[in-house]
Nucleic acid binder design. Structure first.
Lengths: 336, 336
DNA sequence: AGATGACTTTACAGCGCTGTACATTGTGGT
DNA sequence: ACCACAATGTACAGCGCTGTAAAGTCATCT
């Protein structure tokens, strides 16, 4: 059966196409009787508007792209889930762009709009410096997730990574820990996020009068939890003393737990561990993971809000929105 | 700056729009000189084709919808990641439909095509009976993921759940377990998948000459890992004896691990646990989780292949494709 | 009664692209 | 030199919808 078009409905209801269009779009000034007549024709014919045609006519696609490094990473999965939710609520569809942290893929993201594909993009960059993004993105409505390394004209939404790291370390110190390691520097990670977390970590130690020890900053050679595992094992191996770990994310923290278990260091007795992201992982590990908890819903909501404004013509300077965070306390680093 | 259109390029290159179109689309019969001239104009003007217009003209959207209950579930996240990969490779975009297991949302999925949004849909239903799907789906190219409850005209891709459950139980029995519980019946779960897993579980026990004990089939009251936790705790509480658990998915298995730990039952010594999905979770739990491992890449590839054929006019009967599975052996249920 | 203005509905161009039908050019055979 | 035929390029309609401008309708005002 051929698709039913607007004009078919119009003929059936003996009205103009535009009137049908008005009914479909809920335009106010349509007589109830007329509306009912048209609606009847729509129902009888089972008419569904063709969104592609509407897009061409209106210039709006009703879609946004969501560009993230990996959709199967728990944090990004949760963010995607929230954003899909919110977008649906506001009448947008979401198309997924998985960059896999490939610079080319990240660049391509910024050109989708030029292709008329989406009205805007929410983008969590990992390989692209913010300045490059700013340079490339023309007038594409764009909101960045995560830290930026320069005050540019692009909107972005984030938590206060310095304060969050500070809070996490304070939590550890308050529970009596003395030697807090930071697990998270990764070769080739050029994003600002981690540097700010490291900064907050250092600030909290200094504020508490604890001497900084560069040895306590652990490096991993990759982004996988096994890389974290290896880093922690190596630290234990070389005799590094520490009674707490603040990790860049929950996956790394899970790797740390594995390494500590294997080395016979009990958690949280010998070593407390704090993860980051408060992802579902935190509930599956043993012990469960205390984790820095960005308000993901707020992150998603604010990002969408900013994007919405941009898509509706807002042209001001880049805005930096900070959303709340908390420390989700679980077994791996209990209070007190 | 206004968008550059095909006609702008045509004027610049002093040729017809169609010739530019031919160059853009790589049509064979264009003289190299002509091609170069047009390409130059394209480059100078920075022309990008408008995909919406192309869609309207061709009737193809180049997009597929991926409909799953939760994008932040590790299994679905991994499937989405594979599918996004494959789709990108084959020149399709993926739009995400998160149904959250809402029957209305599932119904809406089937109508997207009517709206001209996508060329096809890959759909993992949870609340909708397959027959309803078949009845609703018209000629929308559609491939189902997961078991179906009746031989219908819809394509679908799955693993052999009976055999997989059988294999999992066989693995447990081979390692000397006698009393294997099945954790996974959930109130309100109407999908066939679990029934087939239960069937495979029973078959394997019977084949090994072990008497079936209905007590060993554990019920949960919801889909969350806490529900599984509660079910296992309740079982221990009422004195049920078992030395192994086969779980419907890894999240449930993680819940079981938590319950067992709290009850002082060591894993795998006292109780072996086998999860299902071989998701990332399996690596984060302690002990790590032995898990039934569907070949997710194959699942995604085959699903896309079937969909591709449907989108290109294949109209045969519903095909049922079975992809391989394995048992990913980890610490919670070691061999031997 | 005729004019006024608010509310409804209509007609039609046009969003940017591609498919079709046709015009033009070039090649080789006779 | 002429024709048939393939290879290239062109013109234009039309995909299905919405925006705009204009036309029609009707109650109210003078």
């Amino acid at each position: 059966m051929a698709r039913v078009r607007l004009i078919d409905v119009a003929e059936r209801a003996q009205v103009s196409m535009k009137t049908v269009s008005n009914v479909v779009n809920g335009y106010a000034h349509v007589q109830p009787a007329m509306r009912a007549r048209v609606q009847a024709a729509i129902d009888e014919l089972g008419y569904r508007p063709n969104l592609t045609a509407r897009r061409l006519a209106t210039g709006r696609t009703g879609m946004i792209a969501l560009a993230m490094p990996e959709i199967d990473h728990p944090y990004f999965g949760e963010m995607a889930s929230h954003l899909a939710d919110i977008a649906l609520e506001r009448g947008y569809r979401v198309i997924i762009e998985q960059t896999l942290s490939d610079p080319e893929a990240e660049k391509a993201v910024l050109q989708d709009r030029e292709a008329g594909l989406v009205d805007g993009v929410i983008f969590q960059p990992t390989r692209m410096a913010t300045l490059d993004i700013a340079r490339l993105h023309d007038d594409l409505p764009l909101v960045l997730l995560g830290e930026v390394d320069a005050p540019v004209t692009t909107d972005h939404v984030m938590i206060d990574n310095v304060a969050a790291a500070h809070d996490a370390v304070a939590h550890l110190l308050a529970s009596g820990r003395q030697r807090v390691a930071f697990l998270g520097l990764v070769d080739g990670d050029i994003t600002m996020t981690n540097r700010r977390r490291l900064l907050g970590y250092q600030e909290a130690l200094v504020a508490a009068g604890v001497r900084l020890d560069p040895e306590l900053v652990l490096h991993a050679h990759g982004f996988d939890s096994h890389d974290a595992e290896a880093a922690v094992e190596a630290a234990v191996e070389r005799g590094l003393e520490f009674d707490a770990i603040l990790s860049r994310d929950d996956r790394f923290a899970a790797g740390a737990l594995t390494a500590l278990r294997r080395r016979g260091r009990s958690v949280p007795d010998a070593v407390a561990v704090v993860g980051w992201d408060d992802s579902a992982i935190a509930g599956y590990t043993s012990p469960t993971l205390t984790s820095v908890a960005p308000d993901k819903r707020a992150l998603a909501t604010r990002a969408f809000d900013l994007l919405h404004e941009r898509m509706h013509g807002h042209h001001g300077a880049g805005r930096h929105v900070v959303v709340p965070h908390a420390i989700a306390v679980r077994a791996s680093a209990p209070a007190g």
